[in-house]
């Protein structure tokens, strides 16, 4: 289940945000503090999560102290599903 969430998120990020569809993201790789995803794409990511998993991420939650890696984001999504 969580693998499915992570795979879906990773594909979206690689293709739509990083524009490198072939890129493989490590589930523990830092996304925000490393600068891989900027604040604009973070909002897009939140909209993607809302559309695909039915989970609302609040504006105030879009920062590295709430989630920084795919694993942490997947945990957050699962905890709300």
């Amino acid at each position: 289940m969580s693998d499915e969430v992570i795979t879906k998120l990773a594909e979206y990020i690689a293709a739509e945000i990083l524009k490198q569809p072939g890129r493989v993201l490590d589930p523990d790789e830092s996304l925000l503090t490393s600068g891989l995803i900027d604040s604009f794409h973070l909002v897009d990511l939140a909209l993607f999560v809302e559309d695909n998993f039915g989970v609302h991420l609040d504006d105030a939650e879009l920062n590295a102290s709430v989630f920084d890696s795919l694993n942490q984001l997947a945990d957050l999504i699962r905890s709300r599903q």
């Binding site: 600068g35 900027d38 604040s39 604009f40 909002v43 897009d44 939140a46 504006d59 879009l62």
Partner: peptide
């Protein structure tokens, strides 16, 4: 971009949470 993720972080996070994110989300 990285500079602003690491300079006066609590202010930028505040502004992001209450201005940038809602605005961008609404426009998006």
């Amino acid at each position: 971009t990285q500079f602003w993720n690491n300079w006066h972080m609590t202010l930028t996070q505040w502004i992001r949470a209450y201005v940038f994110n809602p605005l961008t989300r609404a426009l998006r």
